[in-house]
C-alpha cells in the first residue's frame, strides 16, 4: 500500500534535498492568489493542490499563462470548485509561468528486483512515446549523474536550442543527486516525479512534483 503527497508537500520534501523547485505559494482563496501572483510576477500558473491528486493535467486542474489579477482570481475560484471530496484539497498553488521549450522528466522509481532507481528522460507529453531515458540504482555518484545525462540519445536538446542557452549540466546533475539523496534519507519513498522539469534560461526547474510514500497516509506523520 502507498499514498501520494500533495504537490506542495512533495515539493517541500524534495527541495529539502537540493532539488530545484519553482517558487510557489499555496493559497486558500482568490484574494490570496492574486497577492501571491503579484509577488511572483505575471504570468503565473494556478494548480489545484490536494493530498490525493495525481494526474492534474488530465483532469484540467492546471491553468497556464494567467496574465493578470482577474484571471488569477477567476482560475482560483474555478479550481477550488472543481475539487472532489476524495482529492483532499489543501488549496491552490500559484507559481511563476516559466518559459522554456525543452522539458525533461526526472524521478525515482522502485524496481521489484533492484530496488530504488533514479531516472532522467526527455519529458513533456511525448515522454513515454519517445522513451529516451537513463536509469541508475540509488545511490548515485556525481559521475553516474553526469553519465546519465550523456547517455540520452537527444544530446541536441542539451546544447543551445531555439535561441535558449545550453542546459546547465551541473544543475541537472544537482537534480539527480538531490533525488538520490532524498531516496536515501527517506526510505518510505516509493516513487517521485519531477514532470516536467522545464529548462528555463538553461537551468532545469521542476514545475510539478509528486512523491509517493509507502504505507497509508497516517504513516506520513
Amino acid at each position: 500500500m502507498s499514498h501520494t503527497l500533495s504537490e506542495a508537500d512533495s515539493a517541500a520534501l524534495l527541495a529539502g534535498h537540493g532539488v530545484p523547485i519553482a517558487p510557489e505559494r499555496l493559497v486558500a482563496g482568490p484574494q490570496e492568489a492574486v497577492a501571491a501572483a503579484e509577488e511572483l510576477g505575471f504570468p503565473v500558473v494556478a494548480k489545484l493542490c490536494g493530498d490525493h491528486i495525481a494526474h492534474k493535467t488530465e483532469r484540467g486542474l492546471v491553468r497556464l499563462g494567467l496574465q493578470d489579477g482577474d484571471a488569477v482570481a477567476a482560475a482560483t475560484t474555478e479550481l477550488l470548485a472543481a475539487g472532489r471530496p476524495d482529492d483532499a484539497v489543501t488549496g491552490v498553488l500559484v507559481a511563476p509561468m516559466l518559459a522554456g521549450s525543452r522539458e525533461f522528466i526526472a524521478g525515482l522509481a522502485t524496481d521489484p528486483q533492484f530496488g530504488r532507481t533514479v531516472l532522467l528522460g526527455v519529458g513533456g507529453v511525448l515522454a513515454e512515446a519517445v522513451a529516451d531515458v537513463s536509469v541508475r540504482l540509488v545511490p548515485i555518484t556525481r559521475v553516474d549523474a553526469e553519465e546519465m545525462i550523456e547517455e540520452l540519445d537527444c544530446q541536441s536538446l542539451l546544447g543551445e536550442f531555439r535561441g535558449e542557452p545550453a542546459v546547465d549540466r551541473d544543475a541537472l546533475v544537482a537534480v539527480l543527486l538531490g533525488l538520490s539523496a532524498a531516496a536515501e534519507a527517506e526510505p518510505a519513498i516509493v516513487s517521485a516525479d519531477l514532470n516536467p522539469l522545464i529548462v528555463h534560461g538553461g537551468r532545469p526547474v521542476a514545475v510539478d512534483a509528486l512523491v509517493e510514500l509507502e504505507g497509508g497516509p497516517e504513516a506520513a506523520a
Binding site: S2, G107, A109, T117
Partner: peptide, 10 residues
Amino acid sequence: AAASHTGSLA
C-alpha cells in the same frame, strides 16, 4: 502499472 510517470518509464 505505476502511479508515477517515472515508474512506467523505468
